[in-house]
Amino acid sequence: MSAGEQEAHFQRWLRDHVGVMLRVVRACAETQYDQDDSLQDVLVNLWSSIPNFRGDSKETTWIYRVALVWQRGERRRQKHHAMFLNEAAATARSSPDEERSGNELIERLYAAIRQLPKVDASLALMHLDGLSYQEMSEVLGISENYVGVKLTRIRQQLAD
């Protein structure tokens, strides 16, 4: 794969799947600085993984794999300060009160996910995003039965 093809692939994934990556980093890091740093780790891994992507699995599954593999925290990079995530004015599509309570709920969910062990946090995130048991088992390399057992407990924990 040429560098140009790799770059084009990367930009397309960034455009189409940045939401998945943002959700993963927000589920792992609390502050915007840490999220920025974490996103950088995810994206470096994603960039490196492009030549290995043969299209056998869905792009989303692949991106979850890469993003969640980063979570194992095996590599600690030096902190950098180039902030490429910027706060933007939220476009209000609902009333301010509804939006505030919705945001609070989502923030509490992110906080609860951050408290879970890494594997449970990954499962919680994918389950909330609506991935099937089969997709989750493919991403994490564990059996569907085990996914089910884990999710029963995680659903209870998050609902509490």
Binding site: E7, F10, Q11, L14, R15, V18, G19, L22, R23, R26, Q40, L43, V44, W47, S48, R77, H80, A82, F84, L85, N86, E87, A88, A90, T91, I106
Partner: peptide
């Protein structure tokens, strides 16, 4: 989930290249 965040794609791509 991305409502509060904008991604500066060019800066990001440069950072990724540089770090890699």
């Amino acid at each position: 989930h991305g409502a509060r965040l904008n991604v500066d794609a060019d800066l990001l791509l440069n950072e990724v290249r540089r770090n890699h």
